[in-house]
Structures are given as C-alpha cells and as structure tokens.
C-alpha cells in the first residue's frame, strides 16, 4: 500500500474558555491516500470544518491541538514552527472555503491575487506567474481569461468566483485540497458544475481531496470513502458505497434514512429524534446514546472505539464481536 498523503492520528482539539476546557474534536484518526477523495459528513457543529482547519494549521486561539499528530506524506506537520507551516499552506495543502463571495479580497484584482500566490510558492517571475494564472483561469472554465484576469472580484458571479477560488487553491499544485462546503453557498444549478470541476482537476493532477459537506448527494457522487462525524468523533468510516447503502452506526443509519428517495411518497421525512449535545454536555460513554434506538448499558459508560465491520470501521458497541449487549467494565 502506498504511503497516505495525509495521516491523522488521535487528533484532539480543545478550546480553553473561562468556564473550562471544551473538547471539540476527540481522538479523530483517518488517512487519505494519494488522489483519493475522502468525504466528511455530519451535522453542523460535529467538528468537520474544525478538523480541516486543524489539518491546515489555521486554528484560531483559544482553539488548540491538544493531542495526536498530523502527518503529510509521512512528515509530521502539527508541531512545525509557524513560518514552515505557512510554506506548506497553499503549496502542499490547498483550501477552498464555503463562501466564494467573501473568500476573495474585494480590493485586489483577481489576477493580482493569483500572481501573488503563485509567486509566494513557486520560483517564477511576475510575467511567468501571470501566464500561469491565465492558464489556470482557462482551466477552471473562466471565459476570456486574458481579459478577466484584470477584473475585480465583484465583477464575477458566485459560481465564477468559486472557480477563481479553486484556481487559487490549486495554483501551486498541492498534494491535498481541503474543500470546506465548497458548494453550500452556491445556486443549485451551479453546484454540480463546481463539484465536477473540482473532481476533474484533482483527478488530472492526482490531488487528494478532503471534501467537507453535509450534502450526501455530493458525497455519493464524488467521494471514494466517507467519514461520518458526530460530536467531535468519527463514528463510521468506509468506502462510500458501503456507508451510503449499508450504514452500520445507528447515527449513520439515521442520516442516510433521512434522505428522501424520489420514488417514495411519504407524509413526513424521517428524522433522528433529539439534537446533538453541546460541547459542554457530551454524555458519558457513547455521545449518541441519548438519541440511539439501540443503546444498551455498555453505551452509557464506555466510549466506543472504531471497530472493523466488513469494509468499514464503526465506533459502536453493537459491532463489537466480543459480545452483543454484554456488560463490560470500562
């Protein structure tokens, strides 16, 4: 097996507040292979975006990495000095944010932002950087790039701006792109185009993608593997077909079950009862236990670890081969 581009082990992120330390991400581990697309799903506040932010080293205080390690192509990056981590951002790891309308600096020409980024990471002169910028704009599907490169962000539509943002994320040919809800702020009609563009560009370059979204349709179409997050932990991770078709974790089952199928006609949409606990009040044992229809005694006391189950891994005691429903001392 080839070495993963990104390898995250037991990543824990905490926020130190006046009222105590909140654990927003709790021992998250996953790998992304070269060229692979890993979808990360979960409801708001599950820690998806925060995981991406931690990987690229942009956690703002009071948030901090409290444990675990992050490796990029085998090299540890979570403990790098600020300036070395800065060199990795944009060069080795690119990032695409949710809202293209606010991602670009309104006072700089589109071309200047591209040229500036290219010249920061690659040893090229201004003319060469500009030539590359025009090529990139053409590649992301911006018509008349040699003219548009001198345009201002406000002269571009939302979809076009997201194309520019993607060009900016890819301009130094990174090994990994973290796309944080890249289509959420866009028109439905544009979403598919942007996803297709991102997918094509990354396949051509062999770039791995960490695709953070809560759109299961996007995941099913784009991702190779998918990780489901709940209350700061990964509850299920596996090949996209498995997780979408045969979810094993009760939360993942609820999540997939709540997607209405076209052929069904239903009075009410299915939903998972209750809501995700606040960070300050995560229950003991499995965080999902108050909402889980299958919870039993062990779930109330012992935090489940990721267990092999078929092609996937699931953090649920229902899938612990040592004994279903058996009470174990933690």
């Amino acid at each position: 097996m080839t070495e993963p581009v990104l390898s995250v082990r037991d990543l824990t992120v905490e926020f130190v507040t006046r009222r105590g330390t909140l654990r927003a991400i709790d021992s998250v581990s996953f790998d992304i292979a070269p060229g692979e697309v890993l979808g990360v799903v979960g409801e708001s506040g599950a820690g998806k975006s925060l995981t991406g932010t931690a990987v690229i080293g942009l956690l703002d205080p009071p948030g901090r990495i409290a444990g675990g390690e992050i490796r990029l192509s085998g090299r540890r990056i979570d403990d790098l000095p600020a300036d070395e981590m800065r060199r990795i951002r944009g060069k080795r790891i690119g990032m695409v944010f949710q809202d293209p309308l606010t991602s670009l600096n309104p006072l700089y020409r589109v071309g200047d932002q591209l040229v500036e980024t290219i010249m920061t990471h690659l040893p090229v002169g201004r003319d060469e950087a500009r030539r590359r910028a025009i090529d990139l704009l053409a590649e992301v599907g911006i018509p008349a790039p040699e003219r548009r490169i001198d345009g201002w962000p406000h002269e571009f539509s939302g979809g076009m701006r997201q194309r520019v943002v993607i060009a900016l994320a890819l301009c130094a040919e990174p090994d990994l792109v973290i796309a944080d809800e890249p289509t959420t702020a866009l028109d439905v009609s544009v979403q598919a185009q942007i996803i297709a563009l991102l997918k094509r560009l990354c396949r051509e370059r062999g770039t791995a993608v960490m695709l953070i979204t809560h759109d299961m349709g996007v995941i099913a179409e784009t991702a190779d593997r998918v990780a489901v997050m709940y209350a700061g932990r990964i509850v299920e991770i596996g090949p996209v077909r498995e997780v979408v078709k045969h979810p094993r974790h009760p939360y993942a089952q609820g999540l997939m079950g709540s997607i209405p199928a076209l052929e069904e006609s239903r009075e009410r949409l299915q939903q998972i009862e209750g809501s995700m606990p606040r960070l300050a009040a995560i229950p003991k044992g499995c965080a999902f236990n108050p909402r889980c229809p299958h919870a039993f005694a062990r779930c109330m006391v012992e935090k489940p670890v990721l267990l092999e189950s078929g092609a996937s891994r699931v953090a649920c005691w229902l899938h612990d081969g040592t004994g279903l429903g058996e009470e174990t001392a933690a």
């Binding site: 690229i56 942009l58 600020a82 800065r86 060199r87 990795i88 951002r89 944009g90 060069k91 690119g94 990032m95 944010f97 809202d99 606010t102 991602s103 670009l104 600096n105 309104p106 006072l107 700089y108 500036e116 980024t117 920061t120 990471h121 943002v165 900016l168 994320a169 130094a172």
Partner: peptide, 25 residues
C-alpha cells in the same frame, strides 16, 4: 473576514496578509 482566512490558507506571508490585504481594507 473570510478573505483574510483564505489569504492565510494560501500560504501568503504574514507581512503580505497584514500589511497588504488587511491594511488596505
């Protein structure tokens, strides 16, 4: 703002982010 976060995510130097992008705005 998001564009400052994005500028940092692009790996621009702190100088460029603070005195170019932020100060101008």
């Amino acid at each position: 703002t998001d564009y400052i976060r994005f500028a940092r995510a692009r790996g621009l130097t702190t100088r460029a982010v603070h005195f170019g992008h932020a100060l101008k705005n």
